[in-house]
Design a protein around this nucleic acid. Structure first.
Length: 550
RNA sequence: GCCCCCGUAGCUCAGCGGACAGAGCAGGCGCCUUCUAAGCGCUUGGUCGCAGGUUCGAUUCCUGCCGGGGGCGCCA
């Protein structure tokens, strides 16, 4: 019996009580079913009676009494107790609880998927760092979180596309090209230019690709350095992302918005909505109509469009491509953009509460030997994605970045994540998976096939706890998708791993010595296999490997 | 001055309206001729920053303060 089925049973009991005239309330659409922290409170608990008491004009315990009477009749429910102020504590039949293992094994990779976001076309834009240097640590956080979120949203049934916005227009790119040219010619890097070994590397590569380049006039050189540098840098970013297990469906060029006239078109569309005005020679969008703290310039007095104008065009482009929800993931230093991005949507006639979501990720710090690490070999004053991967590996990086809420600033301790591996929760979870695989190997070695499943044999507290945790997985995935918070999946896996380890240590699965396999052997094999599937599916949602051996 | 995030066990962090506040790690004491001990059991450890408010009920929601981090351009 799953939490979902239980929830339906409670609703049916409420409905029946209302129909019988014992309760006069509207039947709620859903009730909360939770696993109590304390085992003495049954397998599941609901506060439904507490919630309904006021409307029913009866004391909570009396409402509980009424619901409990009907609920106890439901097949699969062993008992219903009323506790505290009016909680219903529900105990499920052992056999009914054990059936879950069978359905998980049968569902396999599909277990945990749902339809809570079915038919929602959602676009995730993340990282989107300027292609003027390697991805830095903040971008790595979004690579881990954004990619995991994409996987989770897909699991919840959404139609997801992931996207990287390449800022390939504007003065930063110009400075990048200038810096490359300076480096290649042995001249000092211009003021506000880009420095670091990577600039020299790329400059060398460009010179190697273009014979005689340095003999050309500066103006022509710079064009080559800019365009080729951009291409090489984007290629490197794409390589880093793929190596990090992060895939983008679309690499969107800002320049293409200008070249195609989309920026001008966007301004005209916003003008048509009557939110555009001219002042001091500049053209403005009246974002203050929708909560922004000041209006924003679209076209400067000198006729140049602003970055903000590109943002507006880009948003409209995403919507034109059929995306119902556009999610932006930005660093904490860009939190000021939330208001203006939402205002763009509102000015365009969209619902800023629905069509656009902006997630803000706080900073990431790395420490080694108690000291903050700031330096990178390749990029001088920043830590790059390749540094992170080199120091702690993809699995540990993805997991440790995705296991915390993006609202928290996090500190990654390189020493912890490398030498003392058991201090890192990812290994705790992965180790649980290898133990599960170890059981399968042992079974194969002993020539034991999984026999008929008798779910009622899974009767110990460890088996019951494990079944309970496994049953939570679909709700955790749905919650993580709904809240756009992948870290719930990681936390769940850590808890599940703990419950599994305890089951493993207390419930021998394979026969010892010459003992024959029994029905209990088979039942536990089903359970262990179900647990393996859930851990593998969960790690898959985080883009972290589920190793068979460690 | 205004805006955003954080403040929970020694450390890193969960908990986002419910029952005595949790995990991992760290500290202490135990457990491997048996499916990997990267594990398990027991144990030490907390005025949930402070003060009010809303609620039957607040770590959770609201307000104010105090700490810490980050932002507020006709920059990109």
């Amino acid at each position: 019996m799953t939490p979902e089925e239980l929830s339906q049973a409670v609703l049916s009991a409420v409905r029946a009580s209302v129909e019988a005239g014992e309760l006069s309330v509207g039947v709620p659409e859903r009730v909360t079913i939770e696993r109590p922290k304390n085992r003495e409170h049954g397998d599941y608990a609901t506060n439904a009676a507490l919630q309904l008491a006021k409307a029913a004009k009866k004391p909570p315990r009396e409402v509980a009494q009424i619901i409990a009477g009907r609920l106890a009749q439901v097949g699969g429910i062993a008992s219903v107790d009323i506790a505290g102020p009016g909680f219903l504590n529900i105990t499920v039949d052992t056999a009914s609880a054990g059936e879950l293992a069978r359905s998980i094994v049968e569902a396999g990779e599909a277990y945990g998927r749902g339809e809570s976001l079915a038919k929602l076309k959602i676009n995730l834009e993340f990282v989107s760092a300027n292609p003027t240097g390697p991805i830095h640590i903040g971008g790595v956080r979004w690579a881990a979180v954004g990619d995991s979120l994409a996987r989770i949203l897909k699991a919840a049934g959404a139609d997801v596309s992931t996207e990287y916005y390449i800022n390939d227009a504007g003065v930063q790119i110009d400075k990048f090209g200038g810096s490359l040219m300076a480096a290649a010619n042995g001249r000092p890097i211009p003021e506000d230019g880009y420095v670091g070994e990577y600039i020299n590397d790329i400059a060398r590569e460009i010179v190697a690709q273009h014979a005689g380049l340095l003999e050309l006039p500066d103006e022509e050189q710079k064009k080559v350095f800019t365009s080729t540098g951009l291409r090489l840098m984007v290629a490197e970013i794409q390589r880093s992302m793929e190596e990090f297990g992060t895939h983008f469906d679309v690499w969107f060029s800002e320049k293409s918005l200008h070249d195609s006239g989309a920026v001008d078109e966007a301004i005209e569309r916003l003008r048509g909505q009557n939110h555009v005005y001219t002042d001091g020679g500049a053209i403005w969008l009246r974002t203050t109509d929708f909560g922004d703290d000041k209006d924003r310039v679209l076209i400067k007095g000198d006729g140049e469009t602003t970055y903000f104008a590109s943002d507006a065009a880009y948003y409209l482009n995403k919507r034109d491509r059929g995306n119902e929800v556009c999610v932006y993931m930005l660093g904490a230093d860009h939190h000021g953009y939330v208001g203006r991005l939402k205002a763009i949507a509102a000015c365009a006639g969209d619902d800023p509460e629905h069509n656009i979501e902006v997630l803000i990720g706080q900073f990431v710090k790395m420490v080694r030997e108690g000291q903050e690490v700031r330096m990178s070999k390749r990029a001088g004053n920043i830590i790059t994605i390749d540094d992170v991967v080199e120091w702690i590996g993809v699995d540990a990086a993805r997991y440790s970045l995705a296991r915390s809420s993006t609202d928290s600033t996090i500190t990654l301790d390189i020493d912890v994540l490398t030498s003392a591996t058991n201090e890192n929760p990812v290994y705790y979870v992965q180790y649980a998976h290898t133990r599960m695989c170890g059981v399968e190997r042992k079974a194969k070695e002993l020539g034991i096939e999984r026999g008929e499943f008798k779910p009622e044999l899974l009767a110990t507290e460890w088996e019951s706890n494990l079944l309970g945790m496994l049953g939570e997985f679909p709700r955790i995935v749905a919650k993580a998708a709904e809240l756009r918070e992948p870290h719930h999946v990681a936390r769940y896996l850590e808890e599940l791993a703990g419950v599994y380890h305890r089951f493993y240590d207390n419930c021998r699965i394979m026969p010892l010595g010459d003992e024959p396999a029994t029905d209990l052997t088979y039942a536990r094999m089903w359970l262990a296999d179900a647990a393996r599937i859930v851990v593998a599916n969960g790690l898959g949602l985080l883009g972290v490997s589920a190793p068979e051996r460690m």
